[in-house]
Amino acid sequence: MISYAECSARERLAKLLDPGSFHEWLPPAERVTSPHLAQLGVPFAFDDGVAIGRATLDDRSVFVAAQEGGFMGGGVGEVHGAKLVGLMQRALRDRPAAVLLLAESGGVRLHEANAGLIAVSEVMRALLDVRAAGIPVIVLIGGANGCFGGMGIVARCADHIVMSDVGRLAMSGPEVIESSHGVDEFDSRDRALVWRTTGGKHRWLTGDCDALVEDDVAAFRASAVAAIDASRPLTLAALEEEHALLSARLHALPSDTAGRDEATLLWSALGFADAQQVPDLSVEAVRALRAIR
């Protein structure tokens, strides 16, 4: 078992895809870097924190991107974002069996904030084009930095999300919320609370991710292989269904929770018995809860 969380982006690509099949576009040797970071006097990376290319997965042709959380938390800047957009546009043109996004990002890279914000919205539009063309976009989330900010939105635009229990998917990070509304609103050092709010088990129980796996590269691979034909077209009917689900969830959580844990209350409201046990259960046991509810 190899920890997905502890791998770098390139290690994930090497171990998750068919051996030796990854062919990179705009590799580090081409030195497509961020001029804005250089202007700020901040270290830059020769791949601007994301590796993109084509590969095979279980002998199927896929396009793939992997964000490097170790470089600026995987933040999306102008070049990083444009590489993702280019990958999506190329997928639209060349029609691989699927597009894999190994997401690990804090969202917009604040060092080049405006360009990053526009870039994330361009990624969103390009991804939705790929999805509308019937090419499934599969997002894998299990890096130590999680998948936050604009990338948390991008992830939810995809056809399919695979998460590990250590993975996190959300919008604003706990530190940002704590600095904005205080430690009573969100104690970012309370790891159990952070995971109950954003972690893989929670996202699995709410259906925010489609597969929950162990923190293991092989498990991510198997789950990605299983999802390769999982195209889910965004029709009006599908969006009405999504709307009903999100509205029901909003109303399921009481507005006054009287000091009780909100995550536990929400899981109970969604029909999971013994909700307070969830954080202590194994991945396998939590996975089974959705089947027996």
Binding site: R156, H181, R196, T197, D208
Partner: peptide
């Protein structure tokens, strides 16, 4: 909205839903 409750409820999913609705 910078609130824990919204994060718990999946604000990123709600915003993606809004974006996907406009895209549709």
């Amino acid at each position: 909205q910078l609130r824990r409750r919204d994060e718990l409820l999946g604000i990123n999913r709600a915003m993606a839903h809004l974006g996907a609705s406009i895209d549709l």
